[in-house]
Write a protein that binds this DNA or RNA. Structure first.
Lengths: 355, 355
DNA sequence: TGCTTGAATGACAGCGCTGTCAACGGCCGC
DNA sequence: GCGGCCGTTGACAGCGCTGTCATTCAAGCA
């Protein structure tokens, strides 16, 4: 980049000045406003001028400056999203749904990762709001008070997803992690298992609520109240799943079923069982959570609790688009329960009739 | 949101006007410029005023408008990134490296997904450039001519990653996919395999170069020139891996080793082998590509070709930061080869001494 | 004392674009 | 034949912030 040209009016520090709308207009022999309209509302200008402007755009390889456009129009065409993890396939599906919904409609999706930390989430929310998104879609319901305030005062639609809360900031779409975990426990109990353990990582607020649901179901069935749980604060992975299962089975050798906080952990359990010659599901039942793609294809196939993450993000997008287009009114239903579904597969025994 | 207030000066369509720097300045009893300086260059204002401004910021829950700031200063503090997939764990690591490097330094990372499509990549690049990023980091070297031109004319540093090219747009950090694939084939051959197949999905330009390298190595060894390849255009997944392996083994039952385009496909192969009672590695060797987290933890553990994706993104970030801070000069080395590494594990036989 | 000097603060313009309204001209109907 | 209307086009201001230069004032020095 040739430097030493700085100081000239119109030279930015990045080097050569980028072509602006004025350059396009000049080349096409029209005013700046007309050029702008030719691009944004082609039907408002004559065909003749439109073609000239389009030609100029092509020749100059003009790209509109979104920042200036957003500032002038108070429309950023940006959606802010916060997810706790990029690594977890769950959020890949979720983000895919957001992109599928917004990109074709000319919206950008700005994504930040909170790494399962409330403090990082707060920072991410503040950063995103600085970009003046037209809506915020955040995974989870455990925002810090300041993050909550910022979201409330932002004046834009806010969708909290993944979980349900009595007290949503604005709109809430999710499922009860408590109930889903309880259902998984009930399913294992109905299949005849009596020494049921849990493996969870990382232990964020959502995972904690899953654990609560799990314990409640176990207790309801009058089973052991010994809390057979292996946890890890690190990110969930197959490797962590293996390690936690090894710890678990060493400490409680008579465990006969394990409910994992997600499918990566469950796959780790499966591999560790194979390594140790523990038969799945005969000697050990394994059920994961989320039902990501590989569950159905594993051998033995992995039972899991399917969560509607794509659907959740899709519905969130739909609602956001409706609010933005429409009057700004919120949907009548501010709390939408999308439920969950137990996916019985070969890593757990079929439900025994005699329970 | 109370509506019906539109039309008032200062009311945006989103409802209540957001607090601006002027509000903060007024509340603190200083001029707008001073408030701006109190936030950006605190050492330039007296402690007294700084505290007043900070208090006003807190009371009003003020968040600076990044768009206006960027427009005025010609510094967006944004990095544009394009990756071909969110689902693939490879890019989760890659994005993590970018975030690790840029976020602490006050940069945002804008990420768009090209879904392994050159046309979508071109659109993503145009969109990102509209945000005036201070650098672009794109995965791959196969940009369309228009995308290439846009990048060249953008005037910002451009880093092409994942692969090496003779003709980089600007800076290029990667590895030879051709060589890496050839090395995998050589490794299987050295382990005594003679009927080596390949499974690839999706078949983008990068995968095609891997295939070329693979075939070249096979041919060099004088092995079968029958092209035993199963491919799929869809996104790579464990499920696709299983299906492709099933197709492969039906068509060429005497295959004794398979090199997969990525680890998800490899895991699918492993599961399908188990389902069919094919012993790994005795009857079938499997080697994946990238060496994602689960390879080492699978049972049997999966051999793979480790690619330095975190390191690649880290180095890219480092170079970008250096260019931005420094004179704008490019590093002396515009093409950096980070290599690859064969990770021999239990899914392939150890290299036999007698070849 | 009168001057320079520098730190602290403010005034002003402008980043690139769009909303708004005014201006222009051709066409219609009476 | 003329006013009114609509379809086009342009002028202008301003979005919220920052770069730049001017201004102020106290301290320092001969």
């Amino acid at each position: 980049m040739g430097d030493g040209v700085s100081g000239h009016d119109g030279e930015t520090r990045a080097g050569r000045r980028r072509t602006t709308l004025l350059d396009v207009a000049t080349r096409a022999g029209v005013s700046e406003v007309t050029a702008s309209r030719a691009l944004r509302r082609p039907e408002m200008v004559s065909a003749e001028l439109r073609h000239r402007v389009e030609a100029a755009v092509r020749e100059l390889a003009y790209i509109p400056n979104r920042l200036a456009s957003a500032l002038a129009s108070a429309r950023t065409r940006t959606i802010g999203a916060v997810v706790p993890s990029f690594t977890n396939g769950v959020f890949a599906d979720y983000l895919r749904a957001l992109h599928d919904a917004f990109l074709p409609r000319g919206f950008q999706v700005l994504v930040l990762n909170s790494r399962y930390s409330d403090a990082e989430e707060e920072r991410a929310i503040a950063t995103l709001l600085g970009n003046h998104p037209e809506a915020m879609i955040v995974a989870g319901i455990d925002q810090t008070p300041r993050a909550r305030r910022l979201l409330e005062e932002s004046g834009v639609p806010v969708i909290q997803t993944m979980e349900l809360t009595e007290n949503p900031i604005d709109v809430n779409i999710g499922l009860s992690q408590y109930d889903a975990a309880a259902a998984a426990a009930d399913y294992l109990i109905a299949s005849g298992h009596r020494r049921i353990a849990n493996i969870t990582a990382p232990v964020d607020a959502r995972a904690a609520r899953r654990l609560d649901g799990f314990f409640a179901a176990v207790a309801r069935s009058g089973l052991t109240m010994e809390r057979m749980v292996a946890t890890d604060e690190g990110p969930a992975s197959v490797t962590v799943g293996r390690r936690l299962f090894a710890e678990l089975i060493t400490r409680w050798p008579d465990v006969d079923a394990v409910f994992c906080g997600n499918d990566y952990l469950a796959l780790g359990c499966l591999f560790e069982c194979e390594r140790r010659g523990i038969k799945v599901p005969a000697d050990m039942a394994i059920i994961g959570f989320n039902d990501v793609e590989f569950c159905a294809s594993a051998f033995p196939s992995l039972s899991s609790v399917a969560t509607p993450r794509y659907e959740m993000a899709r519905r969130a997008s739909e609602i956001v688009l409706e609010i933005i287009r429409g009057s700004g009114d919120r949907p009548t239903q501010r709390r939408i329960d999308l439920g969950y579904r137990i996916m019985p597969r070969d890593s757990t025994r079929p439900i025994s009739v005699l329970s």
